[in-house]
Amino acid sequence: MPTMTELAAAADSDDPGTGLAAVAALRRLADELEALHVHNARARGWSWQAIADALGVRRQSVHKKHARRSVREK
């Protein structure tokens, strides 16, 4: 597997297309991390309000996005 430095050098960061695609990849990574940490917080008994406060969003938003998934875990 190539190192991170080799990966960075392989891409032309001056290219707006690369920069925009990197932002999109960052959004996907952030969504992935959010799902993992919300799942973990629910497993530890956190309320939806506490999770929403930690994420800086409304309770309804986080509930709509993650609730049904968490219900199925039980």
């Binding site: 990966l7 960075a8 392989a10 960061s13 690369t18 960052l26 990574l29």
Partner: peptide, 16 residues
Amino acid sequence: RDRELLATIGIDLDEV
């Protein structure tokens, strides 16, 4: 390409 793209902005996907 996500691993490669994230490396361009200093993020090591595997480590994260």
